[in-house]
Design a protein around this nucleic acid. Structure first.
Lengths: 119, 119
DNA sequence: CCCAATGCTTACCAGAAAGTAAGTATTGAA
DNA sequence: TTCAATACTTACTTTCTGGTAAGCATTGGG
């Protein structure tokens, strides 16, 4: 059994939204796939600096199960597997954009505070 | 020392945004405070069914430290403490709205699938 | 015959997050 | 003198998450 996460019952929309994005690398995978359109496993691995193969595949599988990611296997040797976002994945990425913008502002704020604190 | 969470360095805005919201009850606290404007500790506890006092206060403290929540103490007996959102907290809540809407759609989708699966 | 290349899979472990339950402080009222 | 009411604290335990490192399968090339 791979799926361990909950997928409901949810008490509200944010709860449900947060559930599919919670996982250390998920939002980054989302961003990477949205940005490049299609990425091979190895490309994702190299793109997400620090991710382990175990977590990468685990997150990809969960996101596939959640209908966010499409997995295309090419029967070649060595094997080739390409990942891309589904329509749901793309819309989720859109929904995360305001949070990303908020976070960017927060980073700026923190930087400013740190700068003025060390004066 | 209460603060254990990371607060950076962040690799992007979503990363920073997710950081302040990650915590089982944080988005719900945000929603509750935004909805009521001001809530006492006990009111929050009763509003968030299932939360323990330990987690509630821990989350509130972290959110206060992150500048999302304002804590007002009234020196009465028995004590009264009121929590409310700061400007940053309110803007974060706004930023989370699209994710909440996405989640609501997802819940509907899941419900529909489940319904048609059991036919 | 062995290795490279790729995409996994598995077992094991450490640290973090969250749950449980009991205790603290204050003071007015019974 | 004891209790109720409120907002926490604290110690301990359990559960979850993610990291490490090694192994597996396929097949063309040296």
């Amino acid at each position: 059994m791979t799926s361990s996460t909950r997928r409901g019952p949810y008490i509200c929309g944010i709860d449900a939204g947060m559930d599919v994005v919670s996982g250390k690398w998920k939002s980054l995978i989302l961003w990477e796939l949205d940005n490049y359109g299609t990425r091979r496993f190895g490309e994702l691995k190299r793109g997400l600096v620090g991710v382990s193969e175990k977590m990468l595949i685990q997150h990809l599988r969960e996101m596939e199960e959640d209908g966010l990611v499409h997995r295309e296997v090419y029967r070649e040797v060595p094997p080739r597997v390409e990942y891309s976002l589904t329509e749901h994945g793309r819309s989720l990425n859109d929904a995360l954009r305001p949070l990303g913008a908020w976070g960017t502002k927060r980073i700026k704020r923190l930087t400013t505070e740190k700068a003025s604190a060390s004066t």
